[in-house]
Amino acid sequence: MRLLKYLKKLFFRFNILFGVLLLLSCLVPYIPTDMVPVAAIFSLSIPLLVLLNILFLLVWLVLRKRQLWLSLIILVIGYFSLNSFFMLRFADKKVNESDLKIMTYNVRGFHGINHGKRDDDFIRLKDLISEENPDIVCFQEFNYLKRDDFKNYKYKYIEYIKNQNKVKLGIYSKYPLLTKGLLDFPGTSNDGAFVDVAYKNDTIRVYNLHLQSLQVVPNPEVLAREESSKLYTRLSKTFKKQQEQARIVSEHRKTTKYKTIVCGDFNSTQYSNVYKTIKEGDLIDTFQEKGSGYGKTYNFEYYPVRIDFILTDTDFEVIAHKNYKEKLSDHFPVMASLRLKTH
């Protein structure tokens, strides 16, 4: 009996510890990662902290103990401060043919994930895009040699960069492209691109981003073998670069008068200041509006990481958002259906 009482006390202490950590995590989006890199690393743990606090709540609920109020209050505060990383929805509005469908996809150079079956994965990837039939596709880690393989798209922007270390970006569109350009992130192999699209009787600006790569193998066992100090140093440098790139995107976005969509691989979660900097103003996260489930976009084993986004300004209504589960890259594609609002 005494042992049981001791275990309950110990369990409650852990409950307090992880509850406090979740509350502290509510501050993470407001901390620039170039000033406090550990904040961005902390942001990666937020889904785990949420799950742990849900577990504590369920245990106290089963035991019918008043300690459940601690976890419940913390989870409510976390929900309204951070937004949910799990969305529960049962139906979307009907997507019309006239709605704009946009997809973002880090394709990993079309190398696939099946050893020795690269061509098979590429064929399946092309079939997926053909079936889903988005109006605009933004590729990250694009393979320039595949530039003519997407026949359904009359217009495209793939800047050939002589620097072999620079990651290629590809934008394909069924609508004419008026203006094209690169953001040219300094001192990095990553980059951002933008196009102005003639859509119906309007012009929209589309950004395709690939922020600084984490260079992390998506396997817990591999990560556990890496020296923690080396991992921290590498991630700190990465998050500092991402913050710099996020500011470049934010400043560039202020120069356009057009309706705007920002999409791509941010290599950072929705809880980071990097995400907050890009999203600042009136941009809407299509997953938060119409997504369901965890919205996992990166194939990290056993952990729901969302680092690929489609953000749109308030001139668009988000009709639908879809996350895919096809394992044809280390990322999963994301697609949103948007409708221009009539004023």
Rank of each mutant, 00 (worst) to 15 (best):
V62K: 11
E244Y: 14
S25I: 03
V318Q: 02
G112W: 00
Y172P: 04
M35K: 15
S98H: 04
D191I: 05
K290E: 12
V217S: 12
I310M: 04
K290P: 08
S337Y: 11
K154F: 05
L57Q: 06
I46S: 02
D127G: 01
V20F: 13
K259F: 05
E131R: 15
L10E: 10
T188H: 02
H252P: 14
M335V: 10
P333H: 06
N53Q: 12
A193P: 03
V274D: 14
W69E: 02
R66M: 07
T179K: 15
E226W: 05
K101W: 10
K166L: 08
L61E: 05
D191H: 06
N163Q: 12
V217C: 07
V206I: 09
H111Q: 15
N114P: 02
P29Y: 01
Q212T: 12
N323H: 07
L100C: 05
L63D: 13
F266K: 13
Y172I: 01
K5D: 15
K240T: 13
D34K: 15
A246R: 07
V62A: 13
Y298M: 13
L52T: 09
Y155C: 08
D184P: 05
R205I: 09
Y199Q: 03
I278M: 07
F142S: 02
I310P: 10
S229N: 10
H252N: 15
L214Q: 13
V217E: 12
L283F: 01
A224Y: 04
V216H: 11
I102D: 06
H111R: 13
S189Y: 11
D127F: 00
Y302M: 14
D330F: 02
A320R: 10
K237I: 14
E131P: 12
F86L: 05
S98Q: 06
F239D: 15
G187W: 04
G295A: 08
V249F: 02
T286G: 11
K341M: 00
Q242D: 04
V76K: 00
Q270F: 12
V216T: 14
F12R: 11
P32I: 04
F309N: 10
L57I: 00
V167I: 08
H210C: 00
L51N: 14
Y79K: 13
N165W: 06
S43I: 03
K101G: 10
L88V: 08
N143Q: 09
L100N: 03
S228L: 15
G181C: 05
D191V: 09
L7T: 11
G19C: 10
A336Y: 07
G170S: 08
G281K: 00
L68T: 02
L72E: 00
M1D: 15
D119T: 10
A39L: 07
A40I: 08
F56W: 04
F90M: 10
K166M: 12
Y258T: 12
T188Y: 00
G192T: 10
H321M: 12
T179E: 14
I307A: 15
N299R: 12
I248P: 11
F142M: 00
K327I: 05
D120S: 13
S81K: 09
K200A: 03
F110A: 01
N323V: 06
S25N: 09
S236I: 13
I77Y: 09
S236V: 14
Y157T: 05
T238K: 13
V206P: 07
I102E: 08
I248G: 08
F332G: 13
A39R: 11
T256G: 11
T277I: 02
D285Y: 06
D308P: 11
K174Q: 04
L22T: 06
R225P: 05
Y199V: 03
V137Y: 01
